[in-house]
Design a protein around this nucleic acid. Structure first.
Length: 474
RNA sequence: UGAGGUGUAGCGCAGUUUGGUAGCGCGCUUGGUUAGGGACCAAGAGGUCGUGGGUUCAAGUCCCGUCACCUCAACCA
C-alpha cells in the first residue's frame, strides 16, 4: 500500500520545507510551471485566490479605490528614472529585447512592480488639486527573476494586487500608507485567521525608492517569518521622477506625494504554513473554495444520495460553498482527501443519520465528530464556520505570542531564532549592526515594535533607538 | 558563482559495485464484490533508462563530453 500522506510527510517542525512542498503538490494547488521558478495554479488553488480578491475588493472600494489595468511591458527608460528603484530591481528584472522578428530600439522590462508605468500615466492625468487624491488598484502578474523559488512563497512570476495613490500632502500620503497597512492587518485576521506583526521596516529592508516601508509579517509553523504584505510611503521620489505635478489652490505648481501597497499569492503560502498540520491543508472558512463537503455513506442505498442533494441545496441557499462527493471512492478515502485539501467542515450522511434525522459533522480544526439535527443545518453550519475561523486565529495568535522572545545580546538572539522564535531586541539605528545580526544569527530585522522597550542595541551595546523584531525569514 | 547531490513508466523508487531478456509500489483502464477513517479480487495498458559519442559479441550498468533539475551558501513579495 502507498504510504499515506501523513506518514510520507516528515515531522511538521522537523522537515518543514518538504512538508510544505508535499502539501502544495498533493492538494493539487499548483503544478510546477514549464519555465523554472514558475507555477501553474490549478483550479483549487486559484479559487482561494479569487476569494481573497473578492474580499479585498470590498475593502479597497470602501477606501476609495477603483480597479484598473496597466501594461505588462515597461520601457527600460521608465525604470531608470528613479535611481534607487532601478538599482534595487535591476538584478531581478526580465527584459524583452526582440519583438516582431526584430531587435527593439529600446528594451522592454517585464514589470517587477508597476510604480514606474503607473507613475508615468499619473503624471499625464494629474493637473489640478481637484484630481487628488487619486487612488487605483490593479490585479496583475509581475515577474522577478529569483534565484531560488518555492511555490507561492517565491516564484519568478506571481499574481498580486498593487494599489497606487497620489496625494497633495505628505501627511495624507503617510496616513494612507498606515491606513492600508491596517486594512491588510484586519484582512489577515478576519479572512485568513492569521495574526500578524505590522510596523516600519529598516532602511536595509525597505522598498527600493521608498521613503518608508511598512510590512506585515506572519509567523509560520516553524517560527520563520513571512513578509505577507507591504505598504510604502514614497514621498516625492516618484512624483519628481515621473513629473506628477498639480496646480494647487494657491496657483503654485507642486509635486504630489505618492504611496503604494501590495499583497501577492504568497498569502496562499502563508495560509498553508500558518494553519497546516500533519493531515495537510487547513483553510480558513472565509477563503476556502469548498466550505462544507458532504460525504454520502453507502451511497447506493435508497435515499442516501437524495438526502445529500437536499442538504446541499439547503446550504447553497444559505450562501455556503458546499460540495457533495459522489465519486465512488471509499468513504475513508474521501475523508482523508478532503482533510488534506483543508475543507473546514465535513458532513457524513448515511442511512443511520437519515433515519435519525441527523448528520455527522466533523471540523477540520479538530478530530472529534458530533451529531447535529439535519433540520437546522444552515444555522449550525454558519455558526460553526465562524467558530472555526475564530479558533484558527486564536490558536495561531497564541502560538505567535508564546514564541516572541526578548534578547539583549547576540547570543540570546541566536538562541531565540534557533528555537523558532521572533526575537524582540534593541537597535541603535546603524546598518552595520543589522548586518552583524544577520551574519551572526542568519536573522533579519522584520518590523519595528509598536512599543520601544529595549534599552541597548543587541549588536553594539550602545543606546537603542528602536526596538525591532528579528527573525529568520522566507 | 562556491560546495554537494539526482536524472530509469504519470508519481515515488530499485537495478549500476561484478555488463547478459526493463523491475517494484502507487496511480491509470476494464469487470466484479464492497462501503461509518486511504477496501478487495482478477485481467490489462504504459519505458529509444536526460542527452551525444566511445569501448564491447552485448551497455541502464564501464569511459569521455554535454544538458537539466534539486539541496545548502549569496539575492528577494
Amino acid at each position: 500500500m502507498e504510504k499515506s500522506f501523513v506518514s510520507q510527510i516528515a515531522d511538521i517542525d522537523g522537515d518543514f520545507a518538504q512538508w510544505y512542498t508535499d502539501v502544495v503538490v498533493k492538494t493539487k494547488l499548483v503544478d510546477y510551471g514549464p519555465v523554472k521558478g514558475t507555477m501553474v495554479i490549478r483550479p483549487y488553488g486559484y479559487a482561494i485566490w479569487e476569494n481573497i480578491q473578492s474580499e479585498f475588493n470590498k475593502r479597497f472600494q470602501e477606501n476609495g479605490y477603483e480597479n484598473a489595468y496597466f501594461p505588462l511591458l515597461i520601457p527600460m527608460s521608465f525604470m531608470t528614472k528613479e535611481a534607487e528603484h532601478v538599482e534595487g530591481f535591476a538584478p531581478e528584472v526580465a527584459v524583452v529585447t526582440h519583438a516582431g522578428g526584430e531587435k527593439l530600439a529600446e528594451p522592454l522590462c517585464i514589470r517587477p512592480t508597476s510604480e514606474t508605468i503607473i507613475g508615468t500615466m499619473y503624471g499625464k492625468w494629474i493637473e489640478s488639486w481637484r484630481d487628488l487624491p487619486l487612488r487605483m488598484n490593479q490585479w496583475a502578474n509581475v515577474m522577478r527573476w529569483e534565484k531560488t523559488t518555492r511555490p507561492f512563497l517565491r516564484t519568478s512570476e506571481f499574481l498580486w494586487q498593487e494599489g497606487h495613490s497620489v496625494f497633495a500632502s505628505a501627511e495624507e500620503a503617510e496616513e494612507e500608507t498606515l491606513r492600508m497597512l491596517a486594512v491588510y492587518e484586519e484582512f489577515a485576521k478576519t479572512c485568513l485567521a492569521m495574526p500578524v506583526l505590522t510596523g516600519k521596516k529598516t532602511e536595509k529592508e525597505k522598498f527600493a525608492g521608498a521613503v518608508a516601508t511598512y510590512g506585515m509579517e506572519a509567523m509560520m509553523h516553524d517560527g520563520k517569518s513571512l513578509q505577507s504584505g507591504t505598504s510604502h510611503y514614497l514621498g516625492q521620489n516618484f512624483s519628481k521622477a515621473f513629473d506628477i505635478k498639480f496646480t494647487d489652490k494657491d496657483g503654485a505648481q507642486k509635486y504630489g506625494y505618492t504611496m503604494s501597497f501590495g499583497v501577492s499569492t504568497r498569502l496562499i503560502g502563508a495560509i498553508i504554513m500558518t494553519h497546516g498540520d500533519n493531515r495537510g491543508l487547513v483553510l480558513p472558512p472565509v477563503v476556502a473554495p469548498v466550505q462544507v463537503v458532504i460525504v454520502p455513506i453507502a451511497s447506493k442505498k435508497a435515499g442516501v444520495l437524495e438526502a445529500c442533494r437536499e442538504l446541499e441545496e439547503k446550504l447553497k441557499k444559505a450562501g455556503v460553498r458546499v460540495k457533495v462527493d459522489d465519486s465512488d471512492n471509499s468513504p475513508g478515502w474521501k475523508f482523508n482527501e478532503w482533510e488534506m485539501k483543508g475543507v473546514p467542515i465535513r458532513i457524513e450522511l448515511g442511512p443511520r443519520d437519515i433515519e435519525a434525522g441527523k448528520m455527522t459533522v466533523s471540523r477540520r480544526d479538530g478530530y472529534e465528530k458530533t451529531e447535529l439535527p439535519l433540520g437546522d443545518a444552515e444555522n449550525a453550519v454558519a455558526s460553526l464556520l465562524q467558530e472555526i475561523s475564530e479558533n484558527l486565529y486564536e490558536k495561531a495568535k497564541k502560538r505567535m505570542e508564546e514564541r516572541i522572545a526578548d534578547a539583549d545580546t547576540l547570543g540570546e538572539l541566536l538562541k531565540g531564532v534557533d528555537g523558532g522564535n521572533f526575537v524582540r531586541a534593541g537597535w541603535c539605528g546603524e546598518r552595520a549592526c543589522e548586518d552583524k545580526v544577520k551574519e551572526f544569527a542568519q536573522a533579519t530585522s522584520r518590523v519595528a515594535a509598536k512599543e520601544h522597550t529595549a534599552c541597548k542595541c543587541v549588536a553594539c551595546g550602545k543606546k537603542a533607538a528602536t526596538t525591532l523584531y528579528f527573525a529568520r525569514a522566507y
